[in-house]
Every structure is written in C-alpha cells, then in structure tokens.
Computed example of a mutant assay.
Amino acid sequence: MADDDELVADPGVVATWIKGWTLARDTSPPVEDHGGFRVDVGWPQQRTRYVFPRVTPAMRELAATITEPWVFVKACASPAAMRAALPARWAIQSPGFMMECRGVMAGEAATPAGYLLDATEPLPIAVVRALAPGGELAAIGRVVRVGEFAIYDRIETDAAHRGRGLARAVMKKLEAIARDHGASRGVLVATADGRGLYEGLGWELHSLYTTAAIPPPDSTG
C-alpha cells in the first residue's frame, strides 16, 4: 500500500472537485490556468485560488510572480513538496486530504435522539441541517452533483454538539439526496480532524492536499 506522500491525484477528479466547490460556494467557475485551475473567488480574504493536481514547473513560475496576500495556491501534494517548490514568502497551511468514496458510505443513518434533520434539496446545491432540541443549528453540510460525482462541502458541527454522530447523520442524508439525483461517487477535501470521520464512513484518501498563501502584513505592527 502506497504511503500518503506517494499518492498521485487523478486530474479529472481534481477538475470535478473544483467545479463542485465553486458551485457550493457560489463563486465564479474555474478556468484553466498554468496547467491547473484558477478561481476568481472575490472574497475579502481570498481573492483568488489556484488548484493543481500536482506540483509542476508552471505552478512554481506562477507562485514566483505573486507577491500579494489573499491569493492561495493549492496542490495535491505533500507539505514538504509544496515548501520545496515555493519561495520563502509563502506559508504552508494546515494539511488537507482529498478523499473519495466509490460506493455507499458505511454505517447507519440514524439521527441522534432529540435532533431533527432538515433538508433543502434543490440541486445543484442541497443543504442538510441538524437542529438541536431547542431549535438551534447543531450541524450542517452541503452537497452538489457534477456528473456522477457528489462533492461534499463545509460539513460542520457546533462544538457544543460534537461526539453524538451528527456529522455522520448529515453525511448519510446528503448522500441519499445525491444518489437520488444520479451521483454514485463522492469527493471532498477533509481537514486532519475530519479525515477520521470520513474514513469511518468508508472513504479513502485520494491524495494529500496542501495549501500555501502569503501571510498578510501584521496589522498590529
């Protein structure tokens, strides 16, 4: 079995994921740029993001021309590979993990006692919310369909409601919606904390996913 660092991303999967990400975040669609993809996000703290299936000379050349903060370069590569490829002004952020589920997720879909799942299903974006007994939002997740793929995004559980299986319940409900609309494979990018959840649901690591950005000036300086 290959080490995590040795996994090579499928460019087609990466292209599908970034298209789904832009749909889920309601940004401009991705465009090909320097052998990867550029998204003109337009947010105050993320003007542009570049996504690459791997580290390439073109990615290095692009990064060398960027000097401003709020531009992100992301690649399906290890943090060490990204550090070696980028100028010193770029900071490597917390690790990410591109993950894939080729079949039905493992486990039960039961909602924890006292909670209610509320689903909004008008694809391309479906949203599932878990509401606590008092009606407050306890967990939330989103899914979009791109061809046969379901791209899951922003699966979040409020700190006060963690450890009760809400994220699992939200994921299973999102999966049911996506499969009802023709999706048969899942893709997402997980944090280090989220990776364990998805592995417990039967997801597998597709590749490492590393983000780099130029830190903004110290506002207190």
Rank of each mutant, 00 (worst) to 15 (best):
A183T: 09
E32S: 08
P95K: 01
T157I: 00
V8R: 14
S219D: 14
R89S: 09
P112L: 03
I155D: 07
A138K: 01
G35L: 00
S28L: 14
D33G: 13
E156W: 03
L201E: 14
A75V: 09
I66F: 13
L208C: 10
H34W: 02
A213I: 05
V187T: 12
P29E: 03
L116M: 15
A212D: 12
E61N: 06
V39Q: 01
V189N: 06
A113M: 15
A91N: 14
V143K: 00
A126W: 01
A58I: 01
A110N: 12
M171C: 10
D26R: 14
A84I: 07
L131D: 08
I140K: 07
D153N: 06
L137A: 05
G103W: 11
G202H: 13
I125A: 13
D10C: 04
A192T: 15
P79F: 03
V55S: 07
T27Y: 05
Y50C: 09
A138M: 04
G20R: 00
T157N: 02
Y50K: 02
P87F: 01
A91M: 13
L166A: 06
G103F: 13
V146E: 05
R162L: 05
S184K: 14
A139T: 03
E148Q: 11
F52R: 01
D33S: 13
A109W: 09
R47A: 15
V41C: 12
G202W: 15
V41S: 10
V39L: 02
A81G: 11
R195Q: 15
P69A: 08
H34C: 06
H206T: 11
G200R: 13
T27Q: 04
V73S: 03
R38M: 03
P133C: 12
R154V: 10
Q93L: 09
V187N: 12
M105Q: 10
D3R: 15
R164A: 07
I151A: 08
M98C: 05
V146W: 00
E6L: 10
D4K: 14
L188K: 02
A126P: 01
V14P: 00
A212I: 03
L166K: 04
A2F: 15
G12D: 02
V14D: 00
S207M: 12
G182V: 11
M1I: 09
D26I: 11
A119N: 07
K19N: 10
W43Q: 09
V187P: 13
E121M: 05
H206M: 13
D33K: 04
P215K: 03
A9C: 02
D26A: 14
R164T: 04
E32D: 08
V41W: 11
A213C: 12
L205N: 07
G186W: 01
C101N: 09
D153F: 01
T211D: 13
R145L: 03
L201M: 11
A169D: 06
R25H: 12
V39N: 04
P79G: 12
V146T: 07
A91P: 12
P79H: 09
V144Q: 05
P30Q: 00
A178Q: 03
D33M: 05
E199C: 10
D40Q: 12
V55L: 06
H181E: 14
D5M: 11
S219N: 15
T65W: 10
R145P: 02
I18R: 00
A88C: 12
W90S: 06
I151Q: 02
S78C: 04
I140A: 13
W70Y: 14
A58Q: 05
S184A: 15
W21L: 04
R129P: 10
P57L: 02
Q45I: 15
T22P: 08
T65Y: 10
A91I: 10
P124I: 07
